[in-house]
Amino acid sequence: MSIKLKGLVTGLALGASLFAQPAVSADQKLLNTSYDIARELFAAYNEQFSEYWQEKTGETLEISQSHAGSSKQAQAIIQGLKADVATFNQVTDINILHTRGNLIPENWAERLPNNSSPYYSTMAFLVRKGNPKNIENWDDLVKEDVDLVMPNPKTSGNGRYTYLAALGYAQDRFGDDQQKIDNFLQDFLGHVKVFDSGGRGATTTFIERGIGDALLTFESEVLNLADRYDNGEYEVVTPKVSFLAEFPVTWIDEYVEQNNSEELAKAYLEHLYSEDAQRLLASFNNRVHNETVKQENSDRFPEVKLMPIDEIAGSWENATKKHFASGGKLDQLQRRK
């Protein structure tokens, strides 16, 4: 009995040491927390960056990835997930790291170029083969016989972006005429046949269940889908005016200090702006800032007027309060139908 017990204890201790320490021994370690559909993207980038870093410093790297919804990730970081860097798809989720966690300074967005957003995207439409309903811009979406599929703005960031993009279009077109803006948005929401709870759900509704004439979601997702069904079954429509969706990144000051990884974490994020990395990001259907790469991909990313959140709603805080809170604009417009 005691021998068996001893064996068990040793076995468990061995197991524990196995899982407590990574299998590969590297000179430096880095943990990147990211949103849940960025896995392939960062798997590719980590490889590129590790090579770059080894060439530059001679050190081998072990980069770990954590993926989940970016709000859940922000909560985990605040509760002690010791990530060196955060690469999210929502600015609000990084802001929380400052306001609730006090882990990064207030001016985090100013520490890297382009509001600390090395790549960005916008909202676009996926339509069926031959674009039978002739959809080119937002006003085509409210034509008599057009049905739309989009994620619910109440439950999904993706849906919120689409709502704000439609709002941006209306503001651009109707200027200060609040009544006309409201009427357009109400009309627009009235054409939505299915509000799915998340982006992937909306994709399934449109593709698998064949519902709707247009799917409204991220341009990156739309291009990705068009690539996957490359028999021309679906076509991409990028509206002339849309929302600037930023993908903000930051190193987490408190944790890089504890992990002694500040230099590495900064280099990891700064390298995202390099030409090689920008080309990689573009190949995953993201819009980038580098001029050369922009030129190379100009046919996939047509010039459009992109409106940032400040222009459309003042700030994320205002947008949430005015439009998405209970009894806010979104609720009012849907009720008056």
Binding site: F19, R39, S66, H67
Partner: peptide, 17 residues
């Protein structure tokens, strides 16, 4: 869990991932 691949990802979490 923190969902760290290769560190804290259990089998059920891995299925979702």
């Amino acid at each position: 869990s923190g969902n760290i691949r290769g560190q804290t990802n259990t089998l059920p979490l891995h299925v979702e991932l």
